[in-house]
């Protein structure tokens, strides 16, 4: 047993802690042939290059903009869906809506992004619909103004059903007697929702919100990389996608490691803050 435990710890040592040690290269001018131990130490030069370069401001703003807008719109969407489903009397209709809205979640990222690109390019039917409603897009997906709305709306479509599961569960555990009591007190449906339903699910909402707060620096970069194009870099290029381009496509290892380290540290701090707030308000914490 101790042998197996040792094997597991060695596994984590190699695949998780060794790369952390590799972060040293953020402070080096890393050369593949020389390796971590032979490369020259340059202090904070790589960070300086990032902070003083044109990409720092752009990628940071884009990361925050996409993250916060996504939080603003796609976080409440499943809560609203769950509440509306909860008001339905017909179980069959409810099940059907649930099954259908879960579906987009099961399309892989590549397939989903492929569809988004096809539907919103110059020939796509979504572009045609938007244009007939007064838009004037040649191709929406390559338009800087349309990229973020597309990104967020498609996020909502893909996750609304699946994320509503947890709120539906929370709703079903609200005590039915509370509704009876509220009715007797003369509360209408709206008041019942406001004073019984909402408080009943608020702890779940708060936990989910805090979990999301910790993820602010982790924009869904796989989706960004699949959807963006040089024409939309101005709004779509986030820190993670920039690391990917500079590091793996551009081969600038030390520099992009430094950018990555910056991103991880901010993300780590955000998680700690979120956890602290969570402890204070809901007496639940992640660790």
């Amino acid at each position: 047993m101790y042998f197996a435990a040792l094997a597991i710890m060695i596994y984590f040592l190699i695949f998780s802690f060794l790369p952390m040690g590799g972060l040293i290269m953020a402070f080096q001018k890393y050369k593949i042939v020389k390796g971590i131990f032979g490369s020259r130490f340059v202090g904070l030069d790589n960070f300086k290059r990032f902070f003083e370069g044109p990409y720092f401001f752009r990628t940071l703003i884009n990361t925050l903009r996409i993250s916060l807008l996504d939080l603003l719109f796609s976080f409440p969407a499943p809560i609203i869906l769950a509440c509306l489903l909860n008001e339905l009397r017909g179980q069959k209709f409810k099940k059907t809506v649930q099954t259908i809205t879960y579906m987009p979640y099961f399309l892989s990222t590549v397939v989903f992004c492929g569809l988004i690109r096809n539907f919103t390019d110059s020939r796509g039917f979504v572009t045609q619909i938007v244009n007939s409603l007064g838009g004037s897009y040649e191709s929406m997906i390559t338009d800087t103004g349309a990229f973020i709305p597309i990104f967020i709306i498609t996020n909502i479509i893909q996750t609304i059903g699946f994320n509503s599961i947890i709120y539906l569960a929370a709703l079903s555990s609200v005590d039915q007697e509370l509704y009876e009591a509220a009715k007797i007190d003369g509360a209408g449906y709206w008041k019942q929702w406001l004073y019984v339903t909402l408080p009943g699910i608020s702890s779940t909402v708060i936990i989910m919100l805090i979990l999301r707060m910790g993820q602010i620096m982790n924009v869904n970069y796989e989706k960004v990389i699949l959807l963006y194009a040089p024409s939309t870099y101005d709004v779509a290029d986030v820190i993670s996608s920039y690391i990917y381009r500079a590091g793996l496509q551009g081969g600038d290892y030390s520099y992009s490691t430094a950018v990555g380290l910056f991103n991880s540290v901010i993300g780590f701090i955000l998680i700690l803050i979120a956890n602290m707030i969570s402890k204070k308000f809901s007496e639940t914490s992640l660790f």
């Binding site: 984590f12 190699i14 695949f15 998780s16 802690f17 060794l18 790369p19 952390m20 040690g21 590799g22 972060l23 290269m25 993670s240 690391i243 990917y244 590091g247 793996l248 290892y253 992009s256 490691t257 990555g260 380290l261 991103n263 991880s264 780590f268 998680i271 660790f287």
Partner: peptide, 17 residues
Amino acid sequence: ISFTMLFNGGLIPNYIL
């Protein structure tokens, strides 16, 4: 182990590893 969930080496060090 939980620490590795919150903080990791990032793309490039992993790739080099």
